[in-house]
C-alpha cells in the first residue's frame, strides 16, 4: 500500500519553493518569484500556506526603506520535505 504524498507539498509551486529553500540558507520573495517563474499573487498565497503549516518561516523587514519578505525553511519543513521524497521514491519504484 502506497503512502499518500503530503498534499501541502504536492503542488508544483509549493514544491518548487520548498526545493529552493532546502538548498539555501534563506531566500527573499523576489528571488523565489524569479526562480519559480510565478506571479507575485500566486506565490504570496502559496507562501502563506507553507508558513501556516509551519514548513517555512516568513520574516518581514525593510531594505532601503522598501518592504522585504525573506523565507527560511523550518525543521518541520525539512522533515516534511524528506518524508515527501521518501514516499515519492516508493511511487517511482
Amino acid at each position: 500500500m502506497l503512502k499518500e504524498l503530503d498534499p501541502l507539498l504536492h503542488s508544483q509551486l509549493r514544491l518548487g519553493v520548498m526545493s529552493l529553500l532546502m538548498s539555501l540558507e534563506s531566500a527573499d520573495f523576489t528571488f523565489l518569484k524569479e526562480k519559480t517563474n510565478s506571479t507575485a499573487g500566486n506565490l504570496s498565497v502559496q507562501i502563506d500556506k507553507l508558513s501556516e503549516a509551519g514548513y517555512i518561516e516568513v520574516i518581514k523587514s525593510f531594505r532601503d526603506k522598501k518592504p522585504l519578505t525573506t523565507c527560511k525553511i523550518t525543521k518541520k519543513g525539512i522533515k516534511a520535505f524528506e518524508q515527501y521524497v521518501e514516499v515519492l521514491k516508493q511511487y517511482i519504484k
Binding site: 503542488s11 508544483q12 514544491l15 526545493s19 529552493l20 538548498s23 526562480k35 519559480t36 515519492l88
Partner: peptide
C-alpha cells in the same frame, strides 16, 4: 509554475531537481 496542476511522481521529481539546480552555483 502554477498551483492547480496535478503532479505525477515523475513531474514532482523534475520540479525538485530543477529547483535544486537553480539554487546550486548560487554561491
Amino acid at each position: 509554475m502554477n498551483d492547480e496542476k496535478n503532479l505525477t511522481p515523475q513531474e514532482s521529481l523534475e520540479v525538485i531537481t530543477s529547483m535544486i539546480r537553480q539554487a546550486k552555483g548560487n554561491m
